[in-house]
């Protein structure tokens, strides 16, 4: 193999890795917000599926990827609100209600797809936007600055969310409500209100994450297109220890492994297809094994808040 070709493959692999990190990053940052506020949102997979479908469908009908993304964000927010209603207002067991929400998203997206689209349809989708100047730098340009704009947005969200969580009053309240909701309640700040805000924001990000898969990456929709990515994103929150930077590292590690696996297939290296597909899930379990036991989740995570009852 010539040197130029090898370099091309490496650039392609890293660029693919950056692109594939985006849905994980968006969904995991959203889940981080929910968990920081004390709610374990296991419905992430279902929210992503609904976002993936609504983004695809609105783009398909309106021919406008931007409208599609907007629809996915709204749908995700609504799904987040449903999760908040069940787990915050009705104080339901969060693990199980999350499974219900995931099944709901799975069923609804499949149902709507059969009813309104049916068959394989491809959409125009989102085009890459090369950043002027930066995108022209050799090697680095094609790796980092020649993506569709959701990629840039997701990566900018990391420092932004870090700032919001650790340098603003709202962020302080969110962190407090995930640890000692009693204290926040005593200060006269609404526990339910904060948890609703975080779940809705988290849902919006998860909806966008799902739409990234359909509108930006594959330009099509298929049943269960997320294939467990929502659950992987939840695992990344643990792996990244509820910090935006940790989640960024986890998402990149994961998507680079994913990209490597894809390129192995593209280059025709002989490796069973099923084994390649299995790989990310095995990596997730290993990541969970490494990160558990040493982490301190928000103290009130998973516990519904009842005024007057000790947590």
């Amino acid at each position: 193999m010539t040197e130029g070709l090898e370099q091309g493959i490496l650039i392609g692999m890293i660029a693919t890795g950056i692109r594939l990190a985006t849905p994980y990053l968006l969904a995991a940052l959203g889940e981080m917000l929910s968990q920081r506020s004390g709610v374990f949102n296991l419905g992430l997979e279902g929210i992503m599926l609904m976002g993936a479908f609504s983004g695809f469908y609105i783009t398909y009908v309106s021919q406008s990827p931007l409208l599609g993304l907007l629809a996915a964000i709204v749908t995700g927010g609504l799904m987040g609100m449903l999760m908040a209603f069940v787990s915050v207002t009705l104080q339901a067991e969060q693990g199980i209600s999350g499974i219900g929400l995931s099944m709901l998203g799975w069923g609804l997206s499949g149902l709507f797809f059969r009813l309104y689209v049916d068959g394989i349809q491809s959409i125009a989708g989102l085009k890459a936007w090369k950043i002027p100047g930066l995108g022209d730098i050799p090697i680095i340009g094609p790796m980092f600055f020649s993506h569709h704009f959701i990629v840039y947005f997701a990566f900018l969200l990391v420092p932004l969310l870090w700032f919001v969580l650790f340098r603003t009053t709202w962020g302080l309240s969110v962190r407090a409500v995930g640890m000692t909701p009693q204290a926040v309640d005593t200060m006269g700040v609404s526990v339910s209100g904060l948890r609703y805000q975080c779940l809705i924001l988290g849902g919006m990000l998860a909806g966008l994450a799902g739409a990234t898969l359909t509108v930006a990456n594959t330009h099509m929709f298929a049943d269960n297109i997320t294939a467990g990515r929502g659950f992987i994103a939840i695992a990344l929150v643990y792996f990244g220890r509820w910090s935006p930077w940790g989640i960024l590292a986890g998402s990149l590690l994961f998507s680079m492994a994913d990209s490597f696996q894809l390129w192995v297939q593209v280059l025709g290296i002989n490796f069973p297809y099923e084994m390649a597909v299995m790989l990310p899930y095995i990596v997730t379990i290993i990541a969970l094994m490494i990160s558990f036991g040493r982490v301190w989740p928000p103290a009130a995570l998973g516990k519904p808040y009842e005024r007057g009852v000790r947590g």
């Binding site: 279902g46 449903l82 069940v86 009705l90 104080q91 339901a92 067991e93 199980i96 209600s97 499974i99 219900g100 929400l101 995931s102 099944m103 709901l104 998203g105 799975w106 069923g107 609804l108 499949g110 149902l111 059969r114 009813l115």
Partner: peptide, 22 residues
């Protein structure tokens, strides 16, 4: 009606059952 409706109904059954537990 696409069979996915069963998954939808089951999803709602779970949400209703856990939510009504309270």
């Amino acid at each position: 009606i696409p069979a996915a409706i069963v998954m939808v109904i089951q999803g709602f059954v779970i949400l209703f059952v856990v939510a009504s537990d309270v």
